[in-house]
Design a protein around this nucleic acid. Structure first.
Lengths: 129, 129
DNA sequence: CTTGACCTTCCCCTGCACTGGAACGTCCAG
DNA sequence: CTGGACGTTCCAGTGCAGGGGAAGGTCAAG
């Protein structure tokens, strides 16, 4: 299977596939006599895993950790569990930060609901921020 | 006032000040005979506005818009109000997206609570993702 | 035999907001 | 007069996940 076929089968691009190979997420495939990459169907499953992981918001570095464990012949399940737990905490913190920011911005927005430009002096630029 | 003093007075760095000047956020100040930047106290107020705007999560491009309006001699208050409204909607969308992602990840995490590695085959890498 | 689709490697570019460092000039205290 | 703290310009890199495009090789169809 050539790189274009794999890209179509996995819903990505040839650029991304070469990038993943360079980033250590995809093992370098065999080459045809003319130098073309020649993938097995295992690559489709691997790319599906990568896609699922990306959907879950994992970074390529985190995904590579999991793949490295699997490629070393071990079961990555426990590591995946830990990773998801950390990720969950990260998400909670991000959400809390954004909600706090939203609160601040909503307050500023209310204050600026009936702006009185004469109240804003040029040195302060705008008092509603 | 030299660049180091302004940096100290505004709680930032000389690197950032030169970067802001280059980015069009700070007007190029006068220079001393030896070529040193020589700021007035107005720069402190302007940097305070930039700091407040950054705290509200605005990008430098958005802040520059506001500054450009003020520098053109107009009152930026209405534009600030519109900007805050757009920003509020962006934040709502970001929060909603993150909450949806959190749901997905929480579900995956629960599924992986009692991982059974024998259930994971190598081609799938890990079924808990 | 040639056209066009596909493949190869290579390096640079994107957005965001800076940060690091090199190579050099200036200023003040001791 | 020398050392150190400050200033100057300019170039490059950071993290993230690729994308753009050049210059060339390969392959099947017409």
């Amino acid at each position: 299977m050539r790189i274009g076929e794999l890209a179509a089968a996995s819903g990505t691009t040839t650029k991304t596939l070469r990038f993943y190979e360079h980033a250590g997420l995809l093992p370098p495939p065999k080459r045809t006599s003319s130098g073309y990459r020649d993938y097995t169907t295992a690559a489709v499953a691997r790319l599906d895993f990568i896609r699922r992981s990306r959907t879950a918001g994992l970074t390529l570095a985190q995904i590579r950790e999991v793949l490295d464990i699997r490629d070393a012949g071990r079961e990555p399940c426990q590591h995946v569990h830990d990773l998801l737990q950390t990720h969950l905490h990260d998400l909670d913190r991000q959400i809390a930060d954004l909600q706090e920011l939203r609160h601040t911005v909503a307050h500023l927005h209310d204050r600026a609901a009936t702006p009185d430009p004469t109240d804003c002096d040029a040195t302060t630029v705008c008092r509603y921020l």
